[in-house]
Nucleic acid binder design. Structure first.
Length: 468
RNA sequence: GGUAGGGUGGCCGAGUGGUUGAAGGCGCCGGUCUUGAAAACCGGUAGGCCCGUCAGGGUCUCGCGGGUUCGAAUCCCGCCUCUACCGCCA
């Protein structure tokens, strides 16, 4: 959520930001509602103030009179006198009460719309993020590949044989069972079997150990079933509501519905919602491994085959909450991306870094760098029907500024005693089974076996390759 | 799942319809005293929102939401949550 006061001071900053992100927001309506809302608030509060004053003034008298009333006989002249005195005294506060009721109804009529528009105003992109319409306008920052491999030349040229896709590799080694996965849960579901499951557990554990043992992140286990406020607080709602599985417990008489989280980020960021943390607790560095659920609404027909786009997967995630300082946030962004690069290099996977353009940013981030691994089995087919290979997104590193902490009401007290909303960042460490795609496709060997990179072997009982 | 009892400020804890945003204590911050510290004493010590250039003023918040009332921490309803006992169970 943006700061409404910042919006009042500089509305054009936010409207320009929304335009760059290609998010439609009715700013005219927001401005009008905001002015009206403030007018009503002032009006209501003035009257309430008067009401409170009156109440203190005549309240005790009213109490006394009502006490006397009890002792007086029904129909007596004295009773009538007291009664008329009572209604005289009550007239002024009663009138105020009615006026306030009318104003409050008006307030309640506009407040939800005001809030819902406010909630959809995206975080403006950082000033140095390249302007662009879609992922086609993203800018490549750099790439890396293990010695002797060059994605530009293609798999065949580097390795001397035509690559098989991960689908073929997985099938020949019985690492996954798509048919039964679909039988049980429907489209985009799968079962990992044998080496598939071992490989997934190994790579996740390797990533998790790296974050905790080497990088100093606190290991956390978080709920993946959360209440709506967690989704709103982390900025996934309302814009991404259709992407989350919704457990309608309220229909069974329970008080609240629940939602399955699409990333461990929700749980990690939700931990300190509503809290005021000590500045000395910053930066908060958390990592988790969690199951992620995504409906993939609107992605029908896209990446339907294989392990690329599925409804349920496992992910090691890292989040950082640091002081409200742009330079510090940028520094952490680099550091977190560095962790990912180290991991990918240990896994010997070619990758590239893309600076996402304004049009490719989500509502909540002001800066995002995607990391894509090169996947030999992706891309166009050549004349012989062999895939040319292509980069596919495996990681995403975002800087959110105070957008998320503001929504979560997560604050810290700075050196001057002032409360501040800290800046948040998050970044994939390793998401599986998607990461298995480049892992299998890059390390496949001419005879159909798959070589296991050295760094991963300790997590697989020392195994050096996967053979039929 | 059943029954019973709770949720008050950073913490403990008082408060069952009328200057109670909230006594008292602890903690914390500042000051006096002291060579210094401790003790003692004095003062301060939540946040959101609105108005205001500032000073300041107002309003809301006693788990959350709604209701009753001229007026609610206090009464009523729903929800969340904690504790104890019983039942069931990985």
């Amino acid at each position: 959520m943006i700061d409404i006061k910042a919006y009042r001071d500089a509305p054009e900053r936010f409207s320009a930001g929304a335009r760059a992100k290609q998010v439609a927001v009715d700013f005219g309506r927001l401005g009008a509602l905001d002015a009206e809302r403030r007018r009503l608030l002032t009006d209501i509060e003035t009257r309430k103030s008067e009401q409170n004053r009156l109440s203190k003034e005549i309240g005790p008298q009213l109490g006394q009179l009502k006490g006397r009333l009890k002792g007086l006989a029904e129909g007596s002249a004295e009773r009538a006198a007291v009664q008329s005195q009572l209604s005289e005294l009550e007239a002024a506060p009663l009138a105020l009460k009615n006026q306030i009721a009318v104003l409050e109804e008006e307030f309640r009529r506009i407040e939800p719309e005001w809030e819902s528009i406010l909630m959809t105003v995206p975080q403006p992109p950082a000033t140095d993020v390249p302007v662009g319409a879609s992922s086609d306008d993203n800018v490549e920052l750099r790439q890396w590949a293990p010695a002797g491999f060059d994605p530009a030349r293609g798999f065949m040229a580097c390795r001397g044989f035509a690559p098989r896709t991960h689908l073929e590799i997985v099938k020949s080694h019985r690492m996954a069972d798509f048919e039964r996965g679909v039988k049980m849960s429907g489209t985009r579901h799968y079962i990992l079997t044998g080496w598939g499951m071992r490989l997934q557990q190994a790579v996740l554990r390797m990533a998790f150990d790296m974050m905790t043992n080497e990088n100093g992140f606190t290991p956390i286990g978080v709920p993946v079933i959360v209440q709506e406020q967690c989704m709103v607080g982390t900025g996934f709602f309302p814009a991404g509501r259709e992407q989350a599985y919704h457990i309608e417990e309220s229909r069974r008489g329970a008080g609240h519905d629940l939602f399955l989280t699409g990333t461990g980020e929700v749980g990690l960021m939700g931990i300190h919602a509503g809290e005021i943390v000590a500045e000395s607790d910053l930066p908060i560095r958390y990592t988790t491994v969690s199951t992620c659920f995504r409906r993939e609404a609107g992605a029908a027909g896209k990446d339907t085959a294989g392990l690329y786009r599925i409804h349920q997967f496992e992910k090691v995630e890292q989040v950082v909450v640091c002081r409200a300082d742009d330079a510090e946030s940028r520094q952490w962004h680099k550091t977190m991306i560095g962790f990912v690069e180290t991991l990918l290099q240990r896994l010997e996977l070619p990758y590239r870094l893309l600076q996402c353009c304004t049009g490719d940013l989500g509502v909540k981030n002001e800066d995002m760098i995607d990391i894509e691994c090169w996947m030999p089995g992706r891309g166009e087919l050549d004349a012989k029907g062999v895939p040319q290979g292509a980069y596919g997104e495996t990681h995403s590193a975002s800087r959110l500024g105070d957008f998320q902490t503001r929504r979560l009401n997560l604050r810290y007290r700075d050196a001057n005693g002032k409360l501040q909303f800290p800046y948040a960042l998050n970044n994939t460490v390793c998401a599986s089974p998607r990461i298995l795609i480049p892992l299998l496709e890059i390390h496949q060997q001419a005879d159909g076996s798959v070589r296991i990179p050295e760094a991963l072997r300790p997590y697989l009982g020392g195994a050096a390759e996967i053979r039929a």
